[in-house]
Design a protein around this nucleic acid. Structure first.
Ligand code: SF4
Ligand code: SF4
Lengths: 145, 145
DNA sequence: ACAATTAAAGAGTTTTATATCTTTAATAAA
DNA sequence: TTTATTAAAGATATAAAACTCTTTAATTGT
């Protein structure tokens, strides 16, 4: 596995996809999303239900229903998605899996690892979904496989 | 989970522990190691068997047997351990789990993420087990929980 | 040769992550 | 009010990771 769990990868891709596809109060269905980001539809449904319950994205049932994101949703940092799925371990946890981190008595990887962890936190926490989305709209980036 | 799998965390801790405990041709048994790094003994045995088969550490059966590391073993980068257990995904894989990485058409996280991934690679690949071990011997770092 | 010690190997079990399928509830439009 | 459409929820199923227990093989010292 990479840095994030597969579930979390799907979640992030889906969030970018929804953000990209629902600019003006429109909605996008689970089928479109799962095809657009290449993930199993039913599994992704579970993930989006979870994000929706947490208020990270929004959804509406019925005809013309689907998933969408409000301006407030878009202004959230990507870390909200990651923490909802994978928790904070990736931002706070130890490289060697030790329970207590001591600055006084650190494990061999401590100093460099901490810097890397901080950079990751800064990237994921310090940038809004919207700003990633703007890159997508500018055609600079892509979610296609 | 943190950056590495739990199995990989055990492997790294065990390697540092063995390096620390077998300075002059001595050996250390699975029991001592598993207690020293707080991991399940039989499970760790499997992991060390694997590392031993790959020549990353060495072992000897019988009385006064156990695990040990040669000078050559110690000079290896920690990335050998990580790659043996978790593979190269962590160093090469995409944040969003996309299959093909395109510099031309990158995913939204690409640029910053790549930098972080490179830093991690540099840390794990660019430093020998011995040098971590020297920190341990100097009492600067610890594996105790 | 024999007994003791140690890792290696084999064969599970348990837990967690990932994935699928079915049924229900909400909404909208006719 | 009925039908179509959509997400939510529930119930499993499958696969992978983590862990345990038992047996075997190698080595040492007596
Ligand atoms: S010493 Fe550093 S790497 Fe180790 S657990 Fe603490 S913060 Fe994490
Ligand atoms: S675009 Fe960047 S983050 Fe995305 S898969 Fe490629 S290298 Fe990884």
């Amino acid at each position: 596995m990479g840095v994030f769990s597969r579930t979390c990868e799907y979640a992030m891709r889906a969030v970018f996809f929804i953000a990209h596809r629902t600019p003006e109060g429109t909605r996008v269905g689970i089928k479109d999303i799962s095809e657009g980001i290449d993930s199993p539809a039913h599994f992704l449904a579970k993930i989006l239900q979870d994000l929706s319950r947490r208020g990270i994205i929004h959804s509406a049932k019925g005809p013309n229903g689907g998933f969408y994101m409000t301006e407030e949703d878009l202004s959230r940092p990507l870390s909200d998605v990651v923490e909802a799925i994978d928790g904070v371990q990736i931002f706070k946890g130890c490289a060697l899996g030790l329970k207590q981190c001591s600055e006084k008595n650190p494990c061999p990887l401590h100093h460099e690892f901490k810097a890397i962890r901080n950079d990751l936190t800064k990237l994921i926490n310090g940038t809004s979904i919207k700003s990633f989305n703007e890159d997508l709209l500018n055609g600079m980036t892509s979610l296609k496989k």
